[in-house]
């Protein structure tokens, strides 16, 4: 009798995890400091990246469930698409294919020519990039930043930093990779900068996303810079993140105000940043150890070509594996 009573008494007073023991103020202080510590750790140190990856893997099934209604809708929509529409689509695709085949034939010849020329100049071969096609799972849930989530991740050998491209041009860059998804920051996001070149005159600069209205800025250019409306911006490839020559944006407006030494240049992205579902993730292979040699050779390009005009026969005779640096003295 007594033990039973005792047990009852104890049961009533067993503190549970969320008992009303601690005052709200204590809890507030505890959890606030915990959050602040987490924020500082996450933004300044790299410890939490692994944890985030693991947790994202846990979240993935939930994501699939949440996406299920929409994908079901799309699947049914596709299933019931009319015969006529399919035929028409087929027609346009066939025409497009034909047009692109012609361009591709030229491209083959050009690639070959380029390779030969590079060989002649003993430049490093431009590296073939590998690309994976991915589908956008959803746009970022944070209305503050312009991000999308794509259904390809480390399982598909995506690395952080890969360029994300659609049919028309660059739309962003992979900023975080998880096992089966990856987070892409769009080029219109404020935090993303891309080294670019203006196609018309080869001017190199850096483009920044504007953040709010889906445009791209070219800051730090003087008021008298040679940029015109309609100029096309392409990737310069200098950072060895983006392949060379991908279209990014076209200049839509140039404002010069007397009170600023800089021109305000607004560009519209060419890629359909907010529309497509399929994107291509293009990752550059890591640059080889002798990468700096390339820029060296290019800087020397003018004089080197003159010299190599005579030196060509000997250079051709050199074994293919010769390191450019070691080959230098022969024409120095």
């Amino acid at each position: 009798m007594l033990p039973g009573d005792h047990q009852k008494f104890e049961q009533q007073h067993t503190p549970t995890f969320f008992a009303r023991g601690l005052s709200p103020l204590t809890r507030l202080a505890f959890f606030t400091s915990l959050s602040l510590a987490l924020m500082i750790t996450d933004s300044h140190l790299q410890y939490l990246n692994n944890v985030r990856e693991r947790l994202m893997a846990l979240l993935y099934p939930l994501q699939v469930v949440a996406n299920a209604p929409y994908s079901l809708y799309r699947a049914t929509d596709e299933y019931f698409s009319t015969h006529h529409r399919l035929l028409r689509e087929n027609e346009t695709l066939r025409t497009k294919n034909l047009q692109q085949q012609v361009v591709l034939q030229k491209l083959g010849a050009l690639t070959l020519e380029n390779a030969t020329l590079r060989n002649l100049l003993q430049l490093n071969q431009s590296l073939a990039e590998n690309s994976v096609i991915g589908e956008i799972l959803h746009v970022g849930r944070d209305p503050f930043s312009k991000k999308i989530v794509v259904n390809r991740g480390t399982n598909h050998r995506i690395v952080a930093g890969a360029a994300v491209v659609d049919a028309a041009g660059v739309i962003g860059q992979v900023t975080r990779v998880f096992p089966s998804t990856s987070e892409v920051t769009l080029i219109t996001d404020k935090t993303l900068a891309i080294p670019i070149q203006i196609e018309r005159n080869g001017l190199r600069t850096i483009a920044f996303g504007h953040g709010r209205d889906g445009t791209i800025d070219l800051p730090y250019l003087p008021a008298n810079v040679d940029v015109r409306r309609g100029d096309k911006l392409v990737t310069s490839g200098i950072d060895s993140v983006y392949p060379i020559g991908l279209a990014i944006a076209s200049v839509s407006d140039i404002k010069v105000t007397p009170n600023s030494p800089f021109a305000r240049i607004v560009c519209q992205p060419i890629g359909r940043v907010e529309y497509n579902r399929q994107v291509l993730l293009v990752s550059q292979p890591p640059p080889p150890a002798d990468m700096p040699v390339v820029s060296d050779e290019i800087a020397e390009g003018e004089s080197a070509t003159v010299k190599s005009a005579q030196a060509l026969p000997e250079k051709k005779a050199l074994p293919k594996t010769t390191h450019p640096r070691s080959a230098r003295p022969t024409h120095g």
Partner: peptide, 15 residues
Amino acid sequence: LATGGVFGQYALAYT
């Protein structure tokens, strides 16, 4: 985690 922001932002706001 779901919004992909820095850890602790939503946690602090909710707290």
